[in-house]
């Protein structure tokens, strides 16, 4: 039976970090998965939902349901967007039993990328190689809403040439928080600087995460501070050989 999965690359990856989407596709294809990218996809609705604009979020969520209704698996390179779909769509459609049923049918098929690899594809060693000292940043929604903590680390430990070093505050928020990053720019910036101090203390030259928006915040702060540390999405590390 062919192994089939659909990609939901998220709006951030589609518009800002397309290489993450390509890397994710490459890793999955290497493991024998047939991929499909439904072109009508856009966003999960999280920006509006997190800002309190529920009606607008609902519109976008409906669009998502329409696009992905028939997908067998949906793989997402983001813990935050995965959690939006699997946890928060439910709140958006409370009181709309038909949509709620659709959401409940869809939610178990939506997987964050590292969880898909370890739990569905059954892979830990994907044949990657990268010479680097890396540290892993736990993105908040992946960690606290999806309880993803070990899977990305297990995958990274199997990368040849890569040494994984833990930060002292790996699980502390990077300060992104969507519109929070601009509504409270000073606070968000200060949080990012605390994070990159911890990153720098590890001596790692690379920060890895499973959420591109955290990496946008962290890389932005690293680059502003003039620190020679780069950031990569887990998919990009796993695609490299």
């Amino acid at each position: 039976m062919p192994k089939r999965a659909s990609l939901f690359v998220t709006c951030v990856v589609d518009q800002v970090f397309p290489s993450v989407g390509l890397a994710m596709a490459e890793v999955l294809e290497r493991l024998g998965w047939q991929l499909d990218f439904p072109e009508a996809q856009t966003c999960c609705g999280q920006p509006a939902f997190n800002s309190g604009y529920r009606a607008q979020a609902r519109k976008v969520a409906l669009h998502f349901l329409d696009v992905f209704r028939d997908a067998e698996y949906i793989v997402v390179p983001s813990g935050s967007c995965t959690s939006m779909i699997s946890h928060h769509f439910e709140e958006l459609f409370a009181g709309d039993s038909a949509r709620l049923a659709e959401t409940h049918a869809l939610a178990p098929r939506v997987y964050e990328f590292s969880r898909f690899l370890t739990e569905v594809a059954g892979a830990e060693d994907v044949g990657a190689r990268m010479d680097a000292v890396a540290t892993y940043h736990d993105s908040c929604h992946a960690l606290r809403e999806l309880h993803i903590k070990d899977a990305p680390r297990r995958l990274l430990r199997k990368v040849r040439g890569l040494e994984l070093r833990e930060m002292d505050i790996a699980d502390e928020c990077c300060g992104f928080g969507g519109t929070f990053s601009v509504k409270f720019a000073d606070v968000s910036g200060a949080m990012a600087r605390t994070k990159i101090d911890s990153i720098a203390r590890t001596g790692a030259g690379l920060v890895v995460s499973i959420d591109s928006s955290c990496l946008m915040q962290i890389q932005g702060a690293l680059s502003r501070a003039g620190l020679p540390i780069r950031t990569l999405h887990l998919a990009e590390v796993l695609a490299s050989r």
């Binding site: 518009q15 800002v16 970090f17 397309p18 910036g189 990012a192 932005g220």
Partner: peptide, 21 residues
Amino acid sequence: AKWISQRDLPPPPAKSFRRLW
């Protein structure tokens, strides 16, 4: 402007994922 007051902004990629795909 608020973003860039605190940190650098990512360069916009030449092509979106959907184009590349």
